[in-house]
Design a protein around this nucleic acid. Structure first.
Ligand SMILES: NC(=O)c1ccc[n+]([C@@H]2O[C@H](COP(=O)([O-])OP(=O)(O)OC[C@H]3O[C@@H](n4cnc5c(N)ncnc54)[C@H](O)[C@@H]3O)[C@@H](O)[C@H]2O)c1
Ligand SMILES: NC(=O)c1ccc[n+]([C@@H]2O[C@H](COP(=O)([O-])OP(=O)(O)OC[C@H]3O[C@@H](n4cnc5c(N)ncnc54)[C@H](O)[C@@H]3O)[C@@H](O)[C@H]2O)c1
Lengths: 206, 206
DNA sequence: AGCCATTTGTGCAAATGAGCACAAACAGCG
DNA sequence: CGCTGTTTGTGCTCATTTGCACAAATGGCT
């Protein structure tokens, strides 16, 4: 393990390893190997070993990896040995689904607030949350110090919302709107767009 | 353009090009360049030109690309010069959101049926759809010849649903459940998991 | 018509990523 | 305790991917 910058592509795989490991843990497994992990995820054992070795020596020769320990290590590497608060913008279908989603628990995240601009939605109850007026969004995010946001507003409004989020100090955005966002380079942006995934598959269907 | 197999990574970028081009078209633009497209998406102009050149010569030197024409070409390459029918499995929060989603129109897809196993949900109305009993899922998919499905059931049920889908002849699965699926190699699988994307960003936050 | 500013498509080189294969380490067992 | 069967971490090689840089093509302008 050196302290050279870790390639993006390796960082991108760590969450996949983690998800599989947490699954194994749920199945009451104690130990696994790069071989088994690779088969579950569909990548080579050597690659997993090499990826992990970028960050330290977590395995034991002849035995494999202690699942609990490796989970702890990867969580530490990914900085999810804590819970990150998340703001959701847009209380429509997707925003509501995300706000009610139980799956962030134990993955390092917790939705803490949801905003919408529609007077008809402001004040409504969604799961445990009361929809907040997005007019106060920038202030509230600044005050609470939330650093991660998910955009779930129509594409036409997404850039404008992103600009506000940046102003509010948000440092990571997960964007559900099917549009590329402009953001300063110190703000991370990731995208979720089901059409993109579907189109990546139809190429292979005749 | 040769007929050698196209790398996956290139196929994966085509939908991004397409999304940006369709955006430009909406902005009433007629012509664009690899330069502009690259800036919007955040990748190099040379890469875009090289990617596209794998499939033919679509641009004009000194001018650039005619947006309409390039859209048509990419749609053809990705086999979305048609509308694919999609079955949604699971009428919970995510399944409902997807079934009501208007964004598949003009992107090559159309949800045509949604299934659920819960008697409390079967028969319910979601957008334009009546929730179908998943007991008839395999039969109905076989009969209608649907080839693409989206899984939106709890992780614990996802593999079992996937197995049924494969049996029903489904050839492409978009899985929202946070779990890796086993499927025969002739069935394409893609995943959407917001936790994964969030974790890819927290690595870069201290 | 000739010139200038653009922009494509691509050969080639550089950078990045993946995989092989093996020494070293370790557990279990007789 | 020594032997056997595993599995890790990694040096090295091979494959893939990206980027540079330029000839060729094109349109607009004088
Ligand atoms: N529903 C899906 O399955 C799905 C799938 C993929 C992508 N998306 C994308 O996610 C986004 C949301 O989709 P949806 O189906 O939930 O739409 P929706 O219309 O149900 O909800 C959008 C919400 O955003 C709110 N909004 C609009 N402008 C706002 C602003 N400036 N500030 C705060 N709130 C604002 C609206 O009031 C509305 O409640 C869209 O960009 C859509 O393309 C949705
Ligand atoms: N809600 C989100 O924002 C979100 C985000 C990411 C991932 N997910 C994942 O998507 C999946 C669905 O999430 P959700 O929030 O919609 O859950 P949900 O509990 O609201 O809905 C799940 C639905 O699946 C149905 N179901 C269960 N077993 C079934 C079966 N065998 N056949 C057909 N239907 C069946 C249930 O009756 C229920 O209606 C989960 O795997 C979840 O982890 C959800």
């Amino acid at each position: 393990m050196s302290d050279k910058e870790i390639p993006n592509i390796i960082v991108g795989r760590l969450p996949l390893y983690l998800r599989s490991l947490q699954r194994m843990k749920k199945e009451d497994r104690q130990i696994t190997s790069s071989q088994e992990l690779g088969e579950r995820i569909g990548i080579s054992a050597a690659q997993i070993r090499k990826d992990l070795s970028q960050f330290g020596e977590f395995g034991k020769q002849g035995t494999g990896y202690t699942i609990d320990y490796l989970i702890k290590q990867i969580r530490r590497i990914l900085h999810i040995d804590q819970e990150w608060d998340i703001a959701v913008i847009g209380a429509g279908d997707i925003g509501s689904a995300v706000a009610r989603y139980k799956g962030f628990a134990n993955r390092g995240f917790r939705v803490t607030v949801i905003f919408d601009g529609d007077p008809g939605k402001i004040g409504a109850q969604i799961g445990d949350f009361t929809v907040q007026d997005s007019a106060y969004m920038v202030d509230m995010i600044k005050k609470t110090g939330i650093r991660i946001a998910m955009i779930a507003v129509p594409a036409a409004k997404a850039q404008q919302v992103a600009d506000q989020l940046v102003e509010a100090g948000i440092q990571a955005i997960l964007n559900y709107a099917p549009i590329n966002l402009n953001a300063p380079s110190n703000v991370r942006v990731q995208y979720i767009d089901p059409s993109i995934h579907l189109q990546r598959m139809t190429y292979y269907l005749e």
